[in-house]
Computed example of a mutant assay.
Amino acid sequence: MTIRQPLIIVLSILFLGYGFSAQASTLESGVLKEGICLQAGTQWYRHWTEKIKKVFKKEPSIKHGLLVRAKACNQSKGQEWDIDENGVISGVGGELSIYRWRKQFYPATALRHSKGLHSVRYRQQRLYFESRGSSYCLTLGKPMRFKTLPWEECLKSAESRWLFDLPPDPGAEGLIGLTGIDSNQDGIRDDVERFIERVLPDSIEKKETIRAMAISRQKIYESVENRDLVIELGTEVDIASDCFFFLSDGDPENILKKLEAATVNTEERARAWNKINSYFSGMSFTLPDDLSSQCSFKTEN
């Protein structure tokens, strides 16, 4: 019988949006198509008429700012955004704002506020703003055009999210070796971290539990030749799994299978995973009667 200690997960909730960071980073669309980022970098949209161009030229608040577009993520300066503890988003040209003209909303950066501008805040992974007493979010439609949704609808749609501070897609280089690429040095492979952010949008606790599991699995890959350490780390994975089952009311087993598929995604990693599993052959494990005992959450303000 294996005695399991509770998994202690520290959650740092600094404001109403997830992913606060003191460093500039990208805001990537949470729609199914990956790799589309928010970018400041033009005075007007190419398809605009001369009439609307004149309107924006006369607007003093955004005269020295830039319109914002959805572009392929490329780590350029225009795709760098800062988010403070109040959710204020700043980039090249000033704070992210919404300009309303003829019932249309246009995102732009601005150095100062005016009557026609609406400040955008990062809340619950959405771009939140208010206009005429109502709350909205800015999301991405087709083809690569912005659209707005009432706030209540935003919260029901995972695709209305903008993911802050995601590591870049490692591409083919992320498939090399057992441990892949961890560009932000948080203990999770970049491709696995991106998977977690997209699949688990609804709960900080679930996400942090899965992250704890991913970190332990990454350590297992790094220690594949050390049987004793692998078994010790395997217990950590089991504890996180129990905690995740407690937190989930849907189909947690399906999500865990998808996580394993995302982790064991090359022949080399599959061979190592088979070796790791062989260390546990013949061992028995006992589930606790109360799965909630496997996770304890502490919130830091």
Rank of each mutant, 00 (worst) to 15 (best):
M1V: 14
L7P: 02
I8N: 14
V10Q: 13
L16Q: 13
G17Y: 00
A22N: 15
K33I: 13
I36W: 08
A40G: 11
Q43M: 15
K57G: 05
E59Q: 14
E59F: 07
I62V: 04
L67M: 08
V68I: 00
V68F: 00
A70W: 07
K71L: 12
A72M: 14
S76L: 01
K77D: 08
D82G: 14
I83M: 04
D84R: 10
D84L: 10
V92P: 15
I98S: 07
I98W: 04
Y106C: 01
A108I: 05
A108E: 01
H118P: 09
R123M: 04
Q125D: 08
F129G: 00
T148L: 13
W162K: 01
D165A: 11
P167C: 03
P167A: 03
P168L: 02
A172P: 06
G174K: 01
G174Y: 04
L175F: 14
L178T: 02
S183H: 05
S183Q: 06
Q185Y: 12
D191N: 12
D191E: 12
E193C: 03
F195S: 00
E205F: 11
K207G: 12
E208G: 05
E208F: 06
K219G: 01
I220K: 00
V224H: 07
R227N: 08
G234I: 00
E236A: 07
E236C: 11
E236W: 06
F246M: 04
G250L: 10
E253Y: 11
E253T: 12
I255S: 02
I255P: 02
L256A: 02
K258F: 07
A261C: 03
V264S: 05
V264H: 03
T266C: 06
R269F: 04
R269S: 05
R271P: 11
A272G: 00
Y279R: 06
S281F: 08
S293F: 10
